[in-house]
Design a protein around this nucleic acid. Structure first.
Lengths: 252, 252
DNA sequence: CGAAATTTTGATCACGTTCAACTTCAGTGG
DNA sequence: CCACTGAAGTTGAACGTGATCAAAATTTCG
């Protein structure tokens, strides 16, 4: 079992969501303290445990602190589509917690820890701290952009391009979360899960992964991925590193 | 050319976004007035005109008032993926306006009108009116759920299911915007565009559309679509009508 | 060490793309 | 008002891709 991911750099908070929100809007130390206090407890989810089940009510926000999870939906024909991979700093119950019943399920792909806050308590805080509400709005925009890229991936990229794009996206997001090195990172996902992310069959994921290796673009050892030829990968995947958000209050 | 869509029901505002935000959080008449005043002018975009171009800066929010648009991205291989269809009440520059440069392009699919507000002015309002910020947060969650459904569509549904799901989704959203009748609505999209939404080729969209007609599920006249067998359509598409959002302040 | 999950490999085949031609429709200018 | 032009819809044939299924090899974990 992989060692749990940890934040590397020093941060304004031990809660990776708070760290991230601070990059979106200016939060005072008191506001940060108040926000930290709102989180109730830290939970541990074992690998393969469901964190959220579609159809059930759960009006809590779980913030992933370490580990991986997948947000997914099961279809009647037995197929499964993964909506997205949840990484440290991501909000697990987004968007499900905002709806009467959960829209999608979330399952832990590795052991993972999460911090929890009730949605109503969190929204009350947003009400009192405008900067928090605005930071969350920004956070949502990032999320939307991630989803949009996923649509492009699945809709119009070739299987090889999809895999390349997925690897680069995971790397970029993990790096932003302080959980990846310059050109290598740990990705404990089965090929079956990757297939369900990208709308491919597991055997085909296997083949495409081998092709990327054969062409010298990446190498894989255990679940440690190294990007050997970043430029070719970006070219192949048409990958654009995430554009910076405008900063609230900056002049533009 | 189709008559422009108009809101049918009486609304708290002539701006369909404001109408929608009022369903997400309680806004006082004064706050609504203030919000309305923030919008600068009303623009007309002719069919086939680009509203936003990928890569360019545009830190304004355009709210669609009438007409249709498509948010899309062009890939190097010449393919195009439509991220989503913009309907009245939708925010055109979302998420692009929040980034340094636009992530995607938006083009008008019919003549359309839009109201404009500068992002900084809008965010300043969010700062002063917490309920507005929270309403926008809720709006974002809906958007995320829409994107998620799109991922499922393209990733794991058969072409026939995709089309059926798309038709039902357009109907539901148009209906929520007051732009559709009980079981019929106008959808002025070419089959090529629908293909680019769903990751299919235009000829195949044509075939699947014919199959839906042949099986008596829908009928099409001009660009007027009628859902003849709602139940079978929902069964086929695994369509779930949008779950209600929790109301801010409601007990749960 | 044994059981379960995952990766790998191969063969077959259906599905949906591609490309091209033709038809129909809509919008425009003469 | 009609003729013209470009856009959109329709059809068919051929091809290639990626799914499917199954089995074996390998790894992981209890």
């Amino acid at each position: 079992m992989p060692a749990p991911l940890r934040l590397i750099s020093s941060s304004p908070s031990s809660n990776p969501l708070i760290t991230r929100l601070c990059t979106y809007a200016a939060l005072s130390p008191e506001e940060i303290a108040e926000l930290e206090a709102a989180f109730e407890r830290r939970l541990l989810f074992k690998k393969r445990r469901d964190v959220i089940l579609e159809g059930y009510e759960s009006h809590r926000l779980h913030v992933a602190v370490s580990g991986f999870a997948a947000r997914y939906k099961l279809l009647a024909n037995g197929k499964r589509q993964v909506i997205g991979i949840v990484l440290p700093g991501d909000i697990i119950g987004m968007p499900s917690a905002f709806f009467r019943s959960s829209l999608y399920s979330v399952t832990a792909l590795s052991d993972m820890t999460a911090q929890v806050v009730r949605l109503d308590a969190f929204l009350a805080l947003c009400q009192r701290i405008p900067a928090l509400a605005i930071a969350m709005l920004w956070h949502s925009q990032r999320e939307i952009a991630t989803y949009a890229d996923h649509i492009i991936d699945v809709g119009r990229r070739s299987p090889l391009e999809r895999i390349a794009h997925f690897v680069l996206e995971m790397h970029a997001r993990l790096r932003a979360a302080g959980c990846a090195a310059d050109r290598s990172f740990e990705l404990p996902l089965s090929q079956e899960i990757i297939g369900d992310v990208l709308g491919l069959s597991a055997p085909h994921v296997n083949r495409m992964l081998h092709q990327l290796k054969a062409e010298g673009l990446i190498s894989v050892d255990r679940h440690q991925i190294t990007i050997d030829d970043l430029e070719s990968m970006q070219m192949l995947a048409q990958f654009e590193p995430p554009s910076p958000l405008i900063r609230a209050g900056s002049s533009y």
